Amino acid sequence: MQDLLLKSIEDIYDCITDDDYDHDRAIATLSIATDSTGFVLSKFWPLLGGKPPIAYHNLPDDTIRALAKYDDTDEVNEHAMFKNIIMLPERMPMLRRAFLSDEEHYRTLLYETAAKPWGIHSEGVVILNKDERSNLACWFARMGGQSEVDSELLTRISFLNNHLARSMKLQNKISVLNKAVIRSNSALDLVDFGLLLFQHSDSPVFINKPAQDMCSYKDGLDLNKGGLVVQNNCADHQYNQLIARMGDTNIPLSERSGGLVRAPRPSGKTPYNVMAIPLSNSTSGLFPNVNIAVLIFDPELKKTNATEFYMKTFNLTQAEAMFAAELAQGMSVSEYVEKKGIKISTARTQLKSIFAKTETSRQAVLISLLLRSIAGVNLG
C-alpha cells in the first residue's frame, strides 16, 4: 500500500504541465489509489453550478448529468449537507451521513436521480480550497457492490487530496509565472535592439524577436543551436573569443568585462554592432542564473512607432492606437474628430474602449499612462 501511495503522489505531481493541470489524470489516480472510489472535482457551491464538473472518474455519466441538473432547487437550498458545506474545514473528508441520515437521504430527489439507480453510497466531500477565486471540492462515493468507506480509506482520501490541492496550487503559480514570462518577453520584443541571454557560454536561454528577425535576413548574422553566428569568419572568431573569456573564471576580471564586435553585412549596409556584457550572478527573476547578455544594434533598423507600440502593449485596434497616439501628443477629442472627419459618437466609443483596455477612466490619467509607457522605448 505504501508503494501505491508513493506512486500515486508522484503521478499527481506529474499532472502539472507547462500549459494546464491534467485534472482527469489526477482524479483517476485518486480513484485507483482508493480502491476504485468514485470522485468528482467541481466548484463546490452550488454542487456543479449547472455545468459539467472539472473532472470525474469511476462514476456513471448519468449520475454526473443528474448532479448537474440538481441546482438552484428548494431541495438543494434545504439539503443539510449543502447548507453546512461552507463551514467545513479544508482538506478534511466529511461523509454525508454526518449531516443527513440515510433515511432522510433516501427521501431526497438527489438520491432518487443520482445515487439509487446505481447503488451509490458512502457519499462525502473534501473541500480543497475556499476563497473568492477558486472554491473547489472533491466529492467521493462508492458504487454498489463496493464496501463502505472506513477510517483507513478516509485516511487515504485525505492524504491524496492534500497532495491534489498542493499540486493544483503549484500549477497556478507556474501558470502565473508563465504569464509573467510572456509579458516580459513581449516587452523585450518591443525594444529596437536584439537581445540574447546566456547561462555561461551555453546555448541562449532567451532570444527576443528583433534578434530573431535580424538573423533571419542572413545578412551578416545567423542562429544555430549554439546561439549567435557572425557570418564573417574574422568577426565570428572575435565574438566567440569574447564569449569564451566572459565565461572563464580562471582569467582576470578585467579580461571578462565584455566588449564590442562589428559584424560586416554582405548587402553592404552598415555593419551590426554586437555587444557582449557580463551580468551579475545574482541576477534572478524570470531568467535565473543568466550571466551574459548579447545586444545587437542595427544602425539602419526602422524604429518602433507609437501606434504599433500601443497596439501591442494595450491590445488596441489600429484606429484606437492612432487615436491614443494623437491624444498623447496633446490633441483634443474635438480636434481629432475634425481631423479624421468622424462623428463625435464614434470618437467617444473609441475612447471608452481605450479606457477599458488601459484600465483607466479619465483622459488625464490615460495620457499620463501613454507617455510613461513609451518613455523607455525608442519611437519613430
Results as ranks from 00 to 15, higher is better:
residue 104 E to N: 15
residue 240 N to D: 08
residue 46 P to K: 08
residue 5 L to V: 10
residue 279 L to W: 01
residue 85 I to G: 03
residue 6 L to A: 08
residue 188 L to D: 02
residue 117 P to H: 02
residue 127 I to R: 09
residue 21 Y to D: 03
residue 322 M to G: 13
residue 90 E to Q: 12
residue 108 T to P: 07
residue 207 I to E: 00
residue 72 D to E: 09
residue 16 I to F: 02
residue 185 N to M: 12
residue 335 E to W: 06
residue 217 Y to A: 13
residue 356 A to Y: 06
residue 176 V to Y: 11
residue 318 Q to W: 11
residue 313 T to C: 13
residue 220 G to R: 00
residue 299 P to E: 11
residue 253 L to P: 00
residue 217 Y to D: 07
residue 278 P to T: 07
residue 360 T to H: 02
residue 74 D to C: 04
residue 367 I to S: 09
residue 82 F to Q: 08
residue 204 P to W: 02
residue 96 R to K: 04
residue 130 K to R: 13
residue 310 Y to D: 10
residue 105 H to S: 07
residue 10 E to L: 09
residue 103 E to N: 13
residue 305 N to C: 12
residue 180 A to R: 14
residue 193 F to C: 03
residue 213 D to G: 01
residue 368 S to L: 05
residue 353 S to G: 04
residue 325 A to M: 09
residue 148 E to I: 05
residue 215 C to K: 00
residue 368 S to F: 04
residue 303 K to N: 12
residue 184 S to F: 15
residue 5 L to R: 10
residue 55 A to T: 07
residue 131 D to I: 01
residue 37 T to H: 02
residue 99 F to G: 08
residue 225 K to E: 14
residue 170 L to G: 02
residue 31 S to Q: 06
residue 248 D to H: 10
residue 77 N to C: 07
residue 124 G to L: 06
residue 257 S to A: 14
residue 369 L to N: 12
residue 17 T to G: 12
residue 344 I to N: 03
residue 186 S to A: 15
residue 209 K to P: 01
residue 339 K to G: 10
residue 355 F to Q: 03
residue 125 V to A: 14
residue 202 D to L: 12
residue 203 S to A: 14
residue 177 L to Y: 15
residue 336 Y to P: 01
residue 130 K to V: 11
residue 341 G to W: 13
residue 48 L to F: 08
residue 283 T to F: 08
residue 95 L to R: 12
residue 358 T to P: 08
residue 282 S to M: 09
residue 27 I to C: 03
residue 179 K to E: 14
residue 214 M to G: 02
residue 105 H to T: 01
residue 220 G to H: 02
residue 143 M to N: 05
residue 110 L to R: 15
residue 212 Q to A: 10
residue 183 R to C: 11
residue 372 R to F: 07
residue 276 A to D: 00
residue 311 M to V: 04
